[in-house]
Write a protein that binds this DNA or RNA. Structure first.
Length: 274
DNA sequence: ATAGACCTGTGC
DNA sequence: GCACAGGTCTAT
């Protein structure tokens, strides 16, 4: 479910509510979601910890704790992290409840249970699967056409697969890859090795504003995504191709096509994208 | 490279 | 029924 703009929105919508709050109690109803350490140790170590700040790297969200420990959450497809009053009715599939010292709760729910949580002790090595291999943050200085060119030159994969690869660029998923390929005028099935230098320049140009504008709209809600206060995102109205197969291209009016590329359904304009 | 695995829900 | 869903990992 959530890609970079949604995770960033969750971070922003939780920051004020969680900063300087202490986790006084944790209920883990689904220990299998905890990847490290064992759920029992996780509970013991997190209890009494104070949240000092929130962070994000790609699609990973982190709560930085006063001891130097870090709680890392990846929401995968249907994970939700919501700050709520204790009296509020629990969402279905609520698996973890953290009681805070202000009487409110931070709850993790996840229909499909693909999500993962880790608690890294202070100065621990990064045991968070995949995080160490992430490519540049697309909203940072490190991200540019050169970076894309460097990591992708000569590779015989589709540009769709390349942009979905978190080690190429961190945080894009199926929605924003389709949106950026439309904006760059590139077909998702185009082979990376056939792209020209200006294609990479174009990609590097269109990715940041697409993500930035989605963040301004609080992310894209199709069915599951909610921000940290339980609100839906408003970006769906601004999507040009994702979820719009069979509708006319917003630029040329040609009917948008859907095709499986790199194992994911991909929507594109057969005229504007080449 | 593609399929299958992990899960549940929804819509045809 | 079956296909499919904002993700990622493992196995042919």
């Amino acid at each position: 479910m959530p890609e970079l703009p949604e995770v960033e929105t969750i971070k922003r919508t939780l920051s004020n509510s969680l900063t300087d709050k202490t986790i006084v109690k944790i209920d883990i109803l689904r220990p299998s979601l905890i990847k490290f350490p064992l759920a029992e140790d996780f509970s013991q170590q997190i209890t009494g910890e104070k949240i000092i700040s929130l962070g994000r790297r790609g699609k990973y969200l982190s709560l930085n704790l006063a001891s130097g420990a870090e709680l890392v959450v990846h929401l995968r497809m249907t994970g939700r992290l919501i700050f709520t009053e204790q009296t509020e009715e629990k969402l279905p599939h609520t698996h973890i409840i953290m009681a805070l010292d202000d009487g409110n709760e931070l709850r993790y729910s996840d229909v499909r249970r693909f999500g993962c949580l880790w608690l890294l002790p202070p100065q621990a090595e990064d045991k968070v699967t995949g995080r160490a291999k992430l490519g540049p943050e697309p909203l940072s200085e490190q991200f540019n056409a050169e970076a894309l060119l460097q990591i992708l030159t000569g590779r015989k994969i589709s540009i769709k697969q390349a942009l979905l690869d978190q080690s190429v660029v961190a945080g894009l998923g199926n929605i924003y890859v389709d949106e950026t390929l439309f904006a760059a005028g590139l077909l998702p099935m185009r082979c990376v090795s056939d792209l020209r230098r200006e294609d990479f320049i174009r990609l590097a140009e269109v990715i940041p504003p697409i993500l930035q504008s989605s963040i301004e709209h609080c992310g894209t809600t199709f069915s599951d995504y909610l921000d940290g206060q339980g609100n839906r995102g408003g970006n769906i109205a601004y999507l040009k191709v994702y979820g719009r197969e069979g509708q006319p291209c917003p630029v040329c009016g040609t009917i948008l096509k859907k095709q499986r590329v790199a194992g994911r359904s991909s929507v594109y304009c057969p005229v504007c994208q080449k």
